[in-house]
Design a protein around this nucleic acid. Structure first.
Lengths: 405, 405
DNA sequence: CCATTTAATTCAATCACTGAACAATTTCGT
DNA sequence: ACGAAATTGTTCAGTGATTGAATTAAATGG
């Protein structure tokens, strides 16, 4: 039984590649361990020899990715083990988010903890990409100076956008009215981002990554983000499934009733028309104040009070959502669906309806019970996931990071 | 820029792993080359040195995976290159297929060519798993003796089944009326399969693999198999997407009209009710003789003759299929859809309807044109794919094969 | 017929991991 | 209190795979 090395597209592998792999292996083990493991424990768990692990750990400690803890009081005889843990002083990631009614920035340290987070609630629709990103730059500046006083090094930044992203380009963000925007170019005008590498991704994708790391033990799931639009992030075996161009997860435009009401996208009967935030609010009769967060609070309050119209509205949304989720499960055979965005607080009223549809429509429901759960990160999932995604690239491939310093 | 080694689940990597990877790299390059490359050409293309490539090629030739061709007449000066090609005498794969109205076995050699193929048309529904697999054993015996006279070594076998497969167990094959069948155990009763490793997989999955290798250059697509049921094989970046338990691709039970006619699965309005073989034949008024192949031929003939009822039936199926395909594309962002099974010969009458729905319903259709094409392998896609899947495991990881001989 | 050119092999050097021996540090038993 | 036992971590020679330069092999061309 020997390990298989899979290098996605035909690149040769030299000895350095072995080292790169094993560095990642050790780092992953430390990150996933319940309690700070010793070098010997890592060796036992990974199958590497203690000698090799020592050498690898030395490299990782020198690169500030790992820290040695003070020897813990140990049970039994023997030299006390020095525990190893991810270094809180290691490289940190900057998460950025542009959304319809707020901007946000966050600093996530190498252990995955959110060290700083700033939010500005403000309708971004009238501003336009240019001013919005200028505003975001200032917000990011605040977060970065705070990170600086902590002595953190920022390894990179990731921007979450509610729209279709290919590469680093935003093709369309319908609710922001963006088209073919290059947000990195616009952000780089600020001196704050002189030499920080930046990436852009869809909001649901990054939120899904955030949830992935917030709930270890569920490496395969679909995250559904219910905002004004409905997006999904598909995570398979701990990795985002992006599709050929990066446009995967457009669950909001799955046809639920092919001849249903017209959708903004030009088609008819899309999921958004039944389970989108605005559709639910309208069906429940909640007055649209222009502040989605307030309207949503009202909806939840009415539902909690048992208002019949509201409950009917939510039941309808749940059925439509359940139909779409059934489609997803039939196609992808995922066993976990995480409901995020505005769905998270509404889950108590959605849960049964969604489950009923799944029981009806998913062919394999009998053998593969599907778990529906609320997102744990709440509204900050996307920024957190964005910051997290930066440090994940280092965690997944520490060798390149170490060689660059 | 150095290569990343990713080992899916934390196994350590030693030098032998490097060799394993580079063996696969060389083999893949030879397999994908338009014309038999020399050692020097491989070195140039892969980035390895000529010395290394020589060593690797020697191993592969010794293991009968590669053969040296007689030096080709070369243009220009210099020592003539000896071309390298996949060996037709290398390990071969046995493909097996159980379907509703036929059994089939095929031998695929290491180059991917089908060397032998046998088919028995016979309704399997009354037989039951036990007798069906006994019958298949005999059929496989024929193919294997023929392979033996060719001097081929059979490395393993794969069985295609129209049903839900987890691991090596068939949970359900509705149209065969199988439940919790262990086909490998039943096949192993025959001495034919004394020590050949066997696997089982869904028919659409294996057909998709067959198409993958028959149409190089399309590493990401969805293969839709229109038989009595409708299944799909999802191929992403050259690999099957199986889902958590292996139940992915159940496209036949995507809800098209959630309140539509009842389906065998217990739900309502599943795709199968609109675009399944029986639904189309019924709508077109083709008499059901019990021989699906004959009925299908009649349908095609009537369509070609311009029969109005038939054309309406096909248009309806196309719309439903297009709705389901739109869902798939919205979710997975694939750019190619391959229609196989009974859909392949009907494509001329389905094409426009499917495309129309995609244009309407796929949000990103403007930037990601979706190609709809007919399967190239025809009805033998699954057996071929099954045989192919065996030699693919060797091609993807020649090192383990070499070490086992 | 010899210079040129391209292909393939040989061989010392390098790099990462292994395995065994060793050093370090603690607990346990008497 | 002290040595035996246990456990962690390091050192070092050995092994396997790749590199790179030198060498051998086999053709063309003037």
């Amino acid at each position: 039984m020997h390990a298989r090395l899979l290098n996605p597209r035909g690149a040769p592998v030299r000895q350095a590649g072995v080292r790169a792999h094993n560095l990642a292996l050790v780092l992953r083990h430390v990150a996933g361990a319940a309690t700070p493991p010793s070098r010997a424990a890592i060796a036992a768990a990974t199958g590497l020899t203690r000698a090799t692990v020592s050498a690898l750990v030395d490299d990782l400690v020198a690169g500030t990715l790992l820290t040695e803890l003070t020897p813990a009081p140990r049970a039994g005889a023997g030299r006390p083990a020095v525990g190893l843990a991810l270094s809180p002083d290691g490289p940190a990631g900057l998460g950025l988010e542009v959304n319809v009614d707020y901007l946000s920035a966050a600093v996530v340290d190498f252990t995955g903890h959110v060290r700083h987070r700033v939010v500005r609630h403000l309708d971004q629709r009238p501003a336009g990409a240019d001013r919005t990103l200028q505003h975001l730059s200032r917000l990011a500046g605040e977060a970065l100076t705070r990170a600086g006083t902590d002595g953190l090094t920022i390894a990179g930044g990731a921007l979450a956008v509610p729209g279709l992203v290919t590469g680093d380009l935003v093709k369309v963000a319908p609710n922001l009215d963006w088209r073919d925007v290059d947000p990195i170019a616009l952000l780089r005008r600020a001196t704050t981002f002189k030499d920080i590498p930046l990436t852009v991704d869809n909001e649901a994708n990054l939120a899904a990554l955030g949830e992935l790391h917030a709930t270890p033990g569920t490496p395969t799931f679909v995250y559904i983000s219910g905002e004004i639009g409905i997006g999904a992030g598909i995570v398979v075996d701990g990795a985002l499934f992006r599709g050929v161009r990066g446009f995967s997860g457009e669950i909001g435009h799955i046809p639920v009733h092919p001849d249903g009401p017209a959708c903004r996208c030009g088609a008819r009967g899309c999921l958004e028309q039944y389970a989108g935030q605005e559709a639910i609010l309208r069906a429940a009769g909640v007055p649209l104040t222009g502040r989605p967060d307030e309207s949503l609070a009202t909806l939840a309050a009415w539902a909690a009070a048992g208002d019949a119209t509201t409950l009917t509205a939510l039941a309808g949304a749940a059925t439509a959502l359940g139909t779409a989720v059934s489609t997803v499960v039939n196609l992808l055979d995922v066993d976990t669906v995480i409901l995020g965005g505005s769905y998270a607080p509404l889950l108590p009223w959605l849960h049964d309806g969604v489950n009923l549809e799944i029981a009806r429509r998913v062919l394999t429901a009998a053998w593969t019970p599907v778990t529906i759960q609320a997102a744990t990160l709440g509204p900050s999932a996307a920024v957190t996931g964005a910051g997290d995604s930066v440090i994940r690239t280092i965690r997944d491939d520490p060798a390149t990071w170490l060689s660059r310093r």
